[in-house]
Design a protein around this nucleic acid. Sequence first.
DNA 1: CTCTCCGGTCTTTTT
DNA 2: GACCGGAGAG
Length: 819
Amino acid sequence: MSDSIKPVIVGAGAPRPAGDSRPDEDLLAGLNPPQREAVTHRGPALLIVAGAGSGKTSVLTRRIASLLRTREAYPSQILAITFTNKAAGEMRERVRQLIGDSAQGMWISTFHSACVRILRREADQFGFTKSFTIYDSGDSRALVKRLVKEHEGDSFGFTPAAVQGRISKLKNELADAESYARQANMSDPAERVFVDIFADYQRALQKANAFDFDDLIAQTVYLFRAFPHVADVYRKRFRHVLVDEYQDTNHAQYALIHELTRPVVGKAGDAFSSGGMMIFEPDEAPEVEGASLTVVGDSDQSIYAFRGADIRNISEFERDFPGAKVVLLEQNYRSTQNILSAANAVIGHNFDRKDKKLWTDVGDGDPIIGFTGYSQHDEAQFVADEIEALHRKNVDYSQMAVFYRTNSQSRALEEIFIRSAVPYKIMGGTKFYDRAEIKDAMAYLIAVANPADEMAVRRILNKPRRGIGDVTETAIARYAASEGITFRDALANASALGVGVKVQKAIAELDAVLVEASEIMLPSSGEIPPSTSVTEGLRVLLNKSGYYDVLRMSKDPQDEARVENLDELVAVTREFARNNPDGTLLDFLTEVTLVSDADDLDDASGSVSLMTMHTAKGLEYDAVFVTGVEEDLIPHRISAGEPGGPQEERRLFYVALTRARKRLHLSLAMTRAQFGEVSAAMPSRFLQEIPHELIDWRQSPGDVNSRGGMQSRAINGRPGAGGSRFGGSGSNRYGDDLVPLPRREKSDALAKFTNRIPAKIRDNGDMELAAGDRIRHDDFGEGKVDMITGEGAKRVAHVRFDTAGPKKLLIKVAPITKL
DNA sequence: CTCTCCGGTCTTTTT
DNA sequence: GACCGGAGAG
């Protein structure tokens, strides 16, 4: 900042006393010199290169606290961007702990949430209304699907997923349908079709008064560029912009940051109202200098290239923001040296990176434990047993986590965990809000909140079944088009549609329910409804539409669970009302659409956490199990052929390893069932990259592969076996004892292990068991019950098996019989 | 219009 | 092994 201009709009404006004790001195306690620098440096731009576990969250929160404490900024002048809503909540809480409630008024949120806030305020500037809704990926895929069909895109080999991916990528590059069409090769018919689909997709969104995830960012950038006076409002407001996980920002997000931190060039005489104590040069000087930008990131942890993250954002930061200061945080405060050495060795195989080595002074710690199972269930059993062993050593379940590459891998783990009575919680996967009944209920709410959203109205048209089929739906659409009204409004005119009386009545009833709910949640009188109206409105929608009744009268046992899910959703609205006394229906919908998997993570729940390696980013646990460390899984088969794919996979693996504080377990299986069929699996190349002396194999791939079980050489037993030999698919990439199982008829071992788990969960009802009873278990054989704990459906038998040793079993579902 | 059955296609990771 | 779309019967 130059001396002549002091645009900082600090009310009291007391200059910081130079030299003696700083008002933020206590915030620096316990920080190492680079960390201090990261907290106290002031200037236009600061890049904090923060290795895994180097205390970056702490640094970031203290930096914010310091800005507030020294009165360099009001809370309202701070915009902090995090990767997930949960991280945002945590950061807010930690700042509050540091400086108390005066932290109110900061914007701490994800890119997406911040953009929604901006767009809601400014929507009417450019063809949307404040009540716009947000399409999640499922919604937008449904729309793309319809359009691909309409344009017969399948004859050009377009799948909805591919088209959706391409559109998303383009939007992340800030290309819209028009600009893309201008430079597209229009002599290619496939290209023309794609351009048409893209354009129609965008039109449909606009017509529905809706944005997809990518639009939230891109449209905000367009808004700022098209309406500089709007952008200026936010540029003047946010004097300090801080961005976490900067390595995972895409071009649109980068552009947004750029727009926000641009100086405001004011015209002379254009009075600036905020306090009016600004003094600046009359002519060329900007009215307000660009906001100070702080970004935190680690290029070794960039794992979102597939969704447009551009690593250059961080590698070229100094060029993009002249005068930037760079601070390196390399000391790790999380993991033991063994874990760090393994992680360093793995990431060292990426050739296009600045060398950087994490170090710690806490000591070597325990060795890394390795295990190779015959099947994924065998592997899962090892994980479950190991978790139990740790739990007996007083490691809390909530301090343990199991990671995998793909969501589908969670199933085998779940099956075994249920049987072994290991309390667990799955983050992500099929989410609550992805369930059909929940999406239906949400569509009802959206139909009320944003009647322009035709997709939502179409979705609920025949849910529950009310005899409105394809023919009627088309009739409604045609009528709406001919009258120039929306699909939703056409429902009010059932008699004009030329459909049967019965169907007319059904349509009129649906319309009435929507009107009634609308009156509750968005009164036409204009008065502001209490936040509890969402609960009430949802109840009316579900009850009077007949949705609840149909489920309750159904004989399908799954429908019982669906009712429970809907009850849960009603409970969510109640919770929302409690937390947001001023919350509106739209606020509720926005919040629900933008919550991510990691967000509902609850550390205090006393459960082991199961999640993908991606979801694990930013988290840490005392004990970590990385499972499925196999070729074709990590690195994933699909990524192997993509440019930069294997490197990104290696970073992902690195992220997984560095989540562990004290104990790290790596496991794999020699066979893996996917797509119903069993196939041989090979150990991941990344395992070779870990120095062999760091891994203590309980059962190495060699042990498992030699059917006699005589060999026990460790995977990296040969000296010098850790060379970088990735790339080729030659057969000697693995040690001699690492040849994958031959692909031939199932051996006894295979038959025994692959299908150990019945697809259906059994139910032992109220089997009576007491200490001293003897039981037989399908897999573990006979054993004696030591004691019974838990209540009802969660009763657990602690059994000492004659051969398999001690296990815990959930009595209700375990495959056991009393002897 | 609804239900059921069959066959084809999948699965990378997420705001 | 799950999910979707299409075909065909009621």
